[in-house]
């Protein structure tokens, strides 16, 4: 048991170190193509962290959306705009101060959180145990996450699907539905 915990701790430390290194690399990088690729790496590392937390569904989503699709969409956006970050003339002291204060406040906030993985955490005592206990008899499928998403919380999921659809509508309203302004009369917009 303790050997297992030590193993998990080592994996966590490795993942978090890589995450911090990636974040610093993103901050220092001026070429936005590299930044887009690095944020894909960041998402993939987060997906690995979710796996160590046994959150397979979340890890799956993070890898597919964060590392896959959103990286491609970011590259698509880059192709529409500029490829390098503009140099900022102003001093970075005020942003740094804001970041430090906000970060300190967040870390102070985590002090009130229940200990990680404790048995009496709200997640262990609220509705989750009931879903786990009732799914085999109510729904009869092994994947409790699917049962919660599609049946117990079907309304929420319907809302999410509508949000995804609304995102498409918003993008099409901004970029236009048919696209393709290559050599036509609108071709010289860049």
């Amino acid at each position: 048991m303790t050997a297992n915990l030590v193993g998990i701790a080592i994996i966590d430390i490795v993942f978090f170190t890589l995450l911090v290194l990636t974040a610093i690399a993103i901050l220092r990088q001026r070429n936005l193509f590299a930044v887009a690729m690095l944020s894909g790496v960041f998402s993939l590392l987060s997906a690995g962290l979710f796996v160590t937390l046994d959150a397979m569904d979340v890890a799956f989503t993070e890898a597919a959306v964060g590392a896959g699709i959103s990286t491609v969409l970011m590259l698509g956006t880059l192709a529409l705009t500029s490829r390098d970050e503009a140099k900022r003339p102003r001093s970075a002291l005020l942003p740094l101060f804001v970041c430090l204060v906000a970060g300190a406040a967040l870390i102070y906030g985590t002090l009130d959180m229940p200990p990680f993985g404790a048995v009496d955490n709200p997640i262990q005592t609220h509705v989750a145990p009931e879903y786990i206990a009732r799914t085999p008899t109510d729904i009869g499928i092994p994947n409790v996450v699917a049962a919660v998403l599609a049946s117990y919380r079907g309304f929420d999921t319907l809302g999410e699907v509508v949000v995804v659809f609304a995102a498409l509508v918003a993008v099409l309203l901004m970029l236009g539905t048919s696209g393709r302004r290559t050599n036509g009369k609108n071709g010289k917009e860049e």
Binding site: I69, V72, L73, G76, T77, A79, L80, V161, V164, F165, A167, L168, V171, L172, L175, G176, T177, G179, R180, R181
Partner: peptide, 17 residues
């Protein structure tokens, strides 16, 4: 919905380049 939205988003961005 998710598959066609993701693909349409990609096409919307990519076909403007």
């Amino acid at each position: 919905t998710v598959a066609s939205v993701m693909l349409s988003l990609f096409i919307a961005f990519a076909s403007h380049t």
